[in-house]
Structures are given as C-alpha cells and as structure tokens.
Amino acid sequence: GQVHVGDTTYHFPNPEEARKFAEKAAKENNLQVTQHGNTFKVE
C-alpha cells in the first residue's frame, strides 16, 4: 500500500499498515483520508 501525504509518498508492504498510518496522519493533522484501491491519500 502507498500513502500520499502532501508531496511525500510512504510505501508499506501491507495495505492494512498503510491504512492505519493514513488514518493516524489524518487525525493528527485534521485532514481526510481518501482510498483508491491500496493507495491512500491524506489531504
């Protein structure tokens, strides 16, 4: 799974890890998570 936060892309071998990371980043920054397959975008 990939997580895009601003201009930075994080790669995770496990989509579940990617999702947890995205949700945590979104919560900390008052942002939203959008999911496209195994790619998550925090914005």
Rank of each mutant, 00 (worst) to 15 (best):
T34E: 05
N38P: 07
H11E: 07
T34K: 08
V5T: 04
E16P: 00
G37R: 03
T9Y: 09
V3M: 01
V5R: 03
E28I: 09
P15F: 15
K27F: 12
F12E: 02
K20I: 13
F40C: 04
V42A: 03
E23W: 08
N14S: 14
H11W: 15
N38E: 05
K20N: 10
T34S: 10
D7W: 09
P13G: 10
A25E: 10
R19T: 03
F12W: 02
K24S: 10
A22T: 00
A18F: 00
G6Q: 05
A22Q: 00
A18N: 00
V42D: 03
V42H: 03
P15C: 13
V33A: 03
A25M: 15
K20G: 05
K27R: 12
E43F: 11
V42W: 00
K24I: 11
K41E: 09
H11Y: 15
G37F: 05
T39D: 10
T39N: 11
V5G: 01
H36V: 14
R19C: 10
P13S: 13
F40G: 04
E16H: 07
H11T: 10
A26H: 02
P15D: 06
Y10F: 11
V5S: 04
H4Y: 12
P15Y: 14
N14C: 07
V33R: 00
A22L: 02
Q32F: 13
T9P: 03
Q2S: 13
V5H: 07
A18R: 00
Q35M: 08
A18S: 01
T39H: 13
G37V: 03
G6C: 08
G1L: 05
R19Q: 09
K24W: 14
H36M: 13
P13A: 13
F40E: 03
V3K: 00
H11K: 07
G1T: 10
K20H: 10
E16L: 05
V5L: 14
Q2W: 15
A18Q: 01
K24Q: 14
N30A: 08
E17C: 08
F12G: 02
H4S: 09
K41L: 15
E23Q: 08
K27P: 00
P13D: 14
T9R: 07
T39K: 07
Q32Y: 12
T39V: 14
N29W: 14
E16G: 05
H4K: 13
Q35C: 04
D7E: 12
N38V: 05
F40V: 07
Y10A: 02
V3W: 01
N38R: 02
G1M: 10
H36C: 14
V3I: 02
H11S: 09
A25Q: 12
H4L: 14
T9H: 09
H36T: 12
G6N: 10
A26S: 05
Q32H: 12
F21T: 01
N29E: 08
E16K: 04
P15A: 14
K20S: 09
T8P: 02
P13W: 08
D7S: 13
A18E: 02
F21W: 09
